[in-house]
Simulated scan of single mutants.
Amino acid sequence: MSQKLSCKVALVTGGTSGIGLATAKRFVAEGAYVFITGRRQTELDAAVNEIGKNVMGIQGDVSNLADLDRLYATIEQEQGHLDVIFANAGVGQPIPLGSITEEHFDKTFNTNVKGLLFTVQKALPLIPEGGSIILNASTASIVGTPAFSVYGATKAAVRSFARNWTLDLKERKIRVNAISPGMVPTPGYDQFGFSEEQAKEFVESQAKNIPLGRVGTPDEIAKAVVFLASDDSSFVNGIELFVDGGMAQI
């Protein structure tokens, strides 16, 4: 069986759980060597062990530019180049207008916007002509959700990055696309502060708005990221690919 990412070198930020981990697994299964990042060493080590082969974990926070410099120095030393970036690391917490704090705003924008921007910009010297950059956006970029205005604003910025960077990088033939997952329960939902019962109720309430009648899985998102990373999408550039069961499409 042919492998869609054979001999490619890829980076997945926020690769220790959920969509990031599922994507790193898919990348390796498709023949890539993968670097993953995460803020917590214990979780990073566990993810590397779970992936099993052709993977290296590098601890760091994407909102910390020194950590990004160290990341890319390591990638350059280990592999010399980078064919694919999945800028996946992100945070989100439900806080309604009237209760938004400066700390909440700064944390969300520093990771989802500043961190993503410099994740891509600092990687550019390592990306050869024909590389693929995939930005993890969200259906929140176009659909309003109570208490998620700050998060939604960061994801709208991510979508804008994809459009503009497509033009900035056209001479190098580097493709930039955004993927926008819908409702996909992951360990990242822990930051919402829900109890187990509240989390279940939240997911069930959201599933009612999805034409397919269910929420998605991290692996379903990962398969779509593989498509955007591979030559199967060689003429796909600047798009926002919704993988949401139709939730934001009707």
Rank of each mutant, 00 (worst) to 15 (best):
A199K: 13
N164C: 13
N164Y: 14
V203S: 05
T186N: 10
A207H: 04
G182D: 03
G188M: 10
Y151T: 03
V158R: 00
F194A: 05
V184R: 00
Q206W: 06
E196Q: 09
E171W: 01
Q198G: 11
N209I: 02
D168G: 07
Q191I: 07
K208T: 08
E201P: 11
I174E: 01
Q206K: 14
K170Y: 04
R159K: 15
Q198P: 09
A162F: 08
K200I: 01
Q198V: 01
N177F: 03
R159Y: 02
I174Q: 01
I210M: 14
R175F: 05
K208N: 14
A199I: 04
A199P: 03
Q206M: 06
F194I: 00
G152Q: 00
R172H: 09
W165F: 15
K208W: 10
A199M: 15
A199S: 12
G188L: 07
F161M: 15
P187G: 08
W165N: 00
I179Q: 05
G188N: 07
E196V: 11
G193A: 14
A162T: 01
G182P: 06
G188V: 14
E196H: 00
F194C: 04
A153S: 09
Q191N: 07
Y189S: 02
E171H: 11
S205I: 00
K173H: 14
V176L: 09
L167W: 10
K173I: 12
G193T: 06
G152L: 01
F161C: 02
M183C: 11
T154C: 10
K208M: 13
S160N: 09
S180N: 04
E201K: 13
D168A: 11
T166Y: 04
K155W: 07
G188A: 09
G188R: 03
M183R: 00
F192D: 03
Q206S: 09
K170I: 14
A207S: 15
E196G: 09
Q191V: 12
G193Y: 08
L167Y: 05
K173P: 02
K208R: 13
V150G: 02
A199C: 08
D168I: 10
E201R: 13
A199R: 15
I174W: 02
F202C: 03
A153W: 03
G152I: 08
N164D: 11
R175M: 12
L169G: 05
P181S: 10
K155L: 07
K173A: 15
G182Y: 00
V158T: 00
R159I: 08
F194Y: 15
P185A: 10
F202H: 06
A157T: 11
T166I: 11
A153L: 04
K170V: 13
G182C: 14
V184P: 03
G152K: 02
W165D: 01
E201L: 13
L167E: 10
W165E: 00
V203Y: 04
Q191H: 09
K200G: 10
V150T: 15
S195W: 11
A207F: 09
T154K: 03
T186W: 08
E204V: 04
T186L: 07
V203D: 12
P187Q: 12
F161I: 12
V176P: 00
A207L: 10
K200S: 12
E197P: 14
P185F: 02
R163Q: 15
S205V: 05
A153H: 02
A156L: 02
M183D: 01
A156P: 01
V176E: 01
F192V: 08
G193I: 07
E171Y: 04
Y189L: 15
L169T: 04
E197G: 05
E197L: 08
